[in-house]
């Protein structure tokens, strides 16, 4: 049974008599132990989607099942109990500013009616887990962004949830802090077996920690599956844009006039072979490297490259044929897909 099962979710908002469709028939399922990335541009509906998982946002249509329980069937008190089983962290950390670090982590335990002493002991253990045991007396304003998010994570874990929802949890952090927070999330996932759902607009977040990904565009789920698969051969325009386009930090290659370009993705074994050198030696044809990058996908280095090919149709086919033979994933890309930086 899936930990989270979302079926045909529709959410519309009324804003001054205008109907805005935030989610349009989204279905997805998250399995136990997944780190599930939900990615999309801002305004795609991903934040609304994550808020339906704990019913902070009630869907207009469709069902949300958590551990097989239909959230729409729960009474208010039961829903609150269910929410306590689902931890959540936010982009803005949302810590209680008038409470100390320890007080913040104790907060959900107090809500659940735990005794103070018991709550404190548990909170101290969690602060140790997130590496902030020496900060328990500090107040949120004295902490850096990364430290605040660690406190928020400790707080979210206090009630022993089975699911952790992360709503743009790293978007307000610098790249280094982002990496350390993602590492912590992965650790929590592996050590405590907590299923994690990550909402983000950064592809790098997905490739670093997620094993599955869903791409949301204009309120619709356009593609979902394992990160490996989607990264290697994105099918939808939104996925291509997220993987190829926006994150390119190189000088745009508009000046190079290439009609034919292909994207190749190196899997683990092929990354050690001198594929390009062999290609050139074998075909005697020049190829133009338009972009090259390696990325860390779930701890494995995966390379990608965009090559510009000669005009001649037959040579092009020979090259593609050769590359496929060596076990690479080859996809043709159109010019605007890799130059839209």
């Amino acid at each position: 049974m899936s930990v989270i099962e979302i079926r045909n979710l529709v959410k519309t908002f009324e804003v001054e008599n205008n109907k805005i469709v935030a989610l349009d028939g989204v279905s997805l399922s998250v399995e136990k132990g997944d780190i599930y990335g939900i990615i999309g541009m801002s305004g795609a509906g991903k934040s609304t989607l994550v808020r339906t998982i704990n019913y902070l946002e009630k869907p207009t249509e469709g069902t949300v099942l958590v551990d097989g329980v239909d959230l729409s069937k729960l009474r208010p008190a039961e829903l609150r109990k269910m929410r306590a089983q689902i931890g959540m962290i936010f982009q803005g950390f949302n810590l209680l500013e008038q409470r100390s670090v320890l007080g913040n982590v104790c907060f959900p335990l107090e809500l659940a009616g735990k005794r103070k002493q018991e709550a404190r002991e548990r909170a101290r253990g969690l602060l140790k887990l997130v590496g902030l045991e020496d900060k328990e007396k500090a107040y949120p304003t004295q902490l850096s962004g990364g430290q605040k998010q660690r406190v928020a994570i400790a707080r979210a874990l206090a009630t022993d949830p089975r699911i952790l929802l992360c709503d743009e949890a790293t978007s307000a952090l610098d790249p280094q802090t982002t990496t350390s927070i993602l590492k912590l999330l992965k650790e929590i996932n592996e050590r405590l077996g907590i299923t994690i759902v990550i909402i983000t607009h950064q592809m790098s977040v997905v490739t670093e920690v997620c094993n599955k990904v869903a791409i949301i565009d204009g309120g619709k789920l356009v593609e979902s599956g394992s990160v490996d698969e989607i990264f290697a051969s994105p099918k939808s325009d939104a996925a291509k844009e997220l993987i190829l386009g926006k994150e390119i930090r190189y000088v745009p290659v508009e000046k190079i006039e290439t009609k034919h370009a292909i994207r190749i993705v190196f899997k683990e074994n092929s990354a050690y072979e001198p594929v390009l050198a062999n290609l050139i030696l074998k075909t005697g044809q020049p190829v133009n490297i338009l972009k090259a990058d390696t990325r860390n996908i779930n701890g494995r280095a995966v390379g990608e490259m965009i090559l510009g090919l000669p005009e001649d149709g037959q040579t092009k086919n020979t090259i593609i044929g050769y590359l496929k033979e060596t076990g690479l994933i080859v996809t043709e890309v159109s010019e605007n897909e890799y130059t839209s930086a």
């Binding site: 609150r80 306590a84 936010f90 949302n94 209680l96 500013e97 929802l165």
Partner: peptide, 26 residues
């Protein structure tokens, strides 16, 4: 901050708890 209230809701706080433990304190 409405975010803090949302966080409390996500932790399963009731409205009474939000008033006494979040709003009036913060």
């Amino acid at each position: 901050d409405t975010g803090v209230i949302e966080a409390a809701k996500a932790m399963g706080a009731s409205n009474i708890q939000i008033i006494f433990k979040v709003l009036l304190v913060e």
